[in-house]
Structures are given as structure tokens and as C-alpha cells.
Amino acid sequence: MAKHLVLLSLAVVFTFSCLAFAYEPSPLQDFCVADTTSSARVNGLACKDHMKVQADDFFFSGLHIAGNTSNAVGSSIKPVNVAQIPGLNTLGVSMVRLDFAPWGINPPHTHPRASEIITVVEGSLEVGFVTSNPENRLITKVLKKGDVFVFPVGLVHFQRNVGYGNAMALAVLSSQNPGAITIANAVVGSNPSIGSDILAKAFQVDKKIVEQIQSKF
């Protein structure tokens, strides 16, 4: 019995170790400030000489400034990732500021390398994500100031301002470079375009409808 418990414990430890390293590995030193001048190809960015590291390598200013929401979707996203703070390299975390005009949206999208946790600072947001095939179940909720919601890694999700005033939220993501794939842009706005006959069959609509949508991207 004791032997079985030991084996079970080892299996649990191994499983959680695999999960821990499934995305970004833990750093092996105090920090690895990104050397943006290096052409070395690694999973992340090469490290700057630690003797040349300065406080500004870990600093960003400007998150208090509202973004410009005068666009087709009525929203603005201000990222703070390794591109803005080189000191985030290997630390597995980043954040964004999201601004919304009244009824503005952050269109359905995914982050291929990160889960996301969001909190509303001003206004109210309808948020939601869709589970994977075959259920494709929509899980959605209206958030008010101070509310927090989580989007699991890789799942399609969105936000929409459901108020008549501006809204703002802050989100933290579990990657220094989470990436973003906006579904509409990727599917109907790819370059070169996915064949309209393929999309027509996928969406079960007339080919002319697909071509009309593609012309807007």
C-alpha cells in the first residue's frame, strides 16, 4: 500500500511538473533583460549583459493615458509586454489597458500563449469566452467596476462596453508575449485570402456573402 502511495505521489508531482513547464519555463537567473539588438534565435529573447542592466529596463510609463477609441470597433488596447519592458523577458507575465467607447467591443480573439485575468476599472463590460469543440458553449457575464473575470488560455473571448459612458479595464496575461489572433481578421482578412468557396462551405452561406465580407478587410 505504501509503495502504491509513493508511486501515486510521484505521478502527481510529474504531472504538475509537466503542466508547469507546458508554456514558459521558469527563469534560471534573477533576470534576463531582453537584448533587442541581438540576432540570436531563442525561445524568447537573448539576455542583455547583466552589468548593463538599468532600472529603466524594468519600467514603463503611460498606462494612465486613455487610448484612442475612434475606430471601427470602438476600443483601444495598450499592451505592456516584453516589447515595452525588456525586463519581462523570461518572467512569463504581461498586461494591457483596454479602453472602450460606449458600446465599443474588443472583437472575438484568442491568446495562443496565455490565460488572461481582467478587472473593470471604470464602467461595465459584457465579457465571455467559448469552450472548445464540440460543445462551443458560450460562458458570459456582465462585469461592473471592481469585478474580475478569467479567460482560459487559447479560448475565443471578447469584451463589450454595455454602458453609455466610456469604460476601462486592466488585464494581466500569463506570458511575456501572449500573442493575439482576432478571429475575423484571421479568417476573412488573411493575406493571401482563404478561398471564398472554402469559407462559404465552412459558414454554410453563399459565396457572394463571403466575398462581400472579405472586401471589407
Rank of each mutant, 00 (worst) to 15 (best):
H111K: 06
K78G: 04
V120D: 13
G163M: 06
F59P: 04
N81Y: 00
T140Y: 00
K3V: 14
E211H: 03
N191Q: 05
L143T: 06
G128M: 09
L170Q: 07
S215H: 06
G62W: 09
N106C: 10
P134M: 13
N106K: 03
P107R: 00
V162A: 01
Q212D: 13
V172C: 10
V210S: 04
S215L: 06
I65G: 00
V142L: 04
A2W: 12
I117K: 01
M168T: 02
H111G: 10
G179W: 02
V156I: 14
A101K: 15
P152Q: 04
S76Y: 10
L143H: 02
H64M: 09
S190Y: 02
G146R: 12
S17P: 03
I118A: 08
M51V: 08
V142S: 10
L28M: 14
S115W: 02
Q212W: 08
G92I: 04
P192I: 12
V13L: 15
S193H: 04
V130Q: 09
Y23L: 05
M168G: 00
M168S: 00
N136M: 10
G195A: 15
H4V: 12
M168P: 01
S193Q: 09
V210H: 03
F21T: 14
L91A: 15
V153A: 10
F149T: 09
V120A: 13
K207H: 11
K144Y: 09
V156G: 06
F217Q: 05
V205H: 07
